[in-house]
């Protein structure tokens, strides 16, 4: 289309075009890649094949990755770290966290006191957008988005995680072949 100005070509440019150097260079590059893939060598990055064979080879997920949620427990007493403060539910933009607390009577220094403890924790992963605002809001580092990324289930109900799932983790089949 002669709609745009084209600069006057030099002789070397004309000759290059005449001998189809442009096409030959491109074909040479793909051939180089083909040979590089077979020998798994590449001049730039050192490897010729970039495929990760996913179920066979597990990807290494970054430590900061925002994946499946988890409620951490005290490693010694195995009590939940959650103090039912509801900050995560307030911070959540999608409103997908429900913290259900209950009052229990405990004896502190000989006197009966009421304390709010966690009863049930509902986390709707189908609505979660993994922004990690809840994780940042948690004062006790209890709620954490882990490196687990396989969240698919067969039903919508399966996306709603309760306290047990959040604490123990969900059982998933890990395909390895």
């Amino acid at each position: 289309m002669p709609l745009v100005k084209t600069p006057k070509p030099t002789w070397s440019q004309k000759l290059k075009r005449f001998f189809m150097i442009d096409l030959i260079k491109g074909l040479g590059l793909t051939l180089k890649y083909n040979i590089g893939a077979i020998t798994d060598k590449d001049s730039v990055a050192g490897k010729g094949i970039y495929t990760e064979q996913y179920p066979k080879v597990r990807p290494d997920v970054a430590p900061r990755f925002h994946g499946a949620p988890r409620l951490n427990m005290d490693p010694e007493t195995h009590d939940t770290l959650c103090i039912a403060c509801n900050l995560c539910a307030i911070a959540c933009p999608e409103d997908c966290i429900d913290v259900i607390a209950m009052d229990v009577e405990i004896i502190v220094a000989g006197k009966p006191r009421r304390k709010k403890v966690l009863d049930e924790f509902i986390f709707d992963t189908s609505r979660c957008m993994f922004c990690a605002l809840c994780q940042e809001a948690c004062p006790t580092a209890c709620l954490e988005l882990t490196q687990e990324f396989e969240l698919a289930t067969y039903s919508r109900a399966g996306f709603v995680w309760n306290r047990e799932m959040l604490e123990q983790g969900r059982e998933t089949v890990k395909y390895t072949s």
Partner: peptide
Amino acid sequence: ERQFGARLTCH
């Protein structure tokens, strides 16, 4: 992913 914790919609 290493910096923000997510690949596409990083927040």
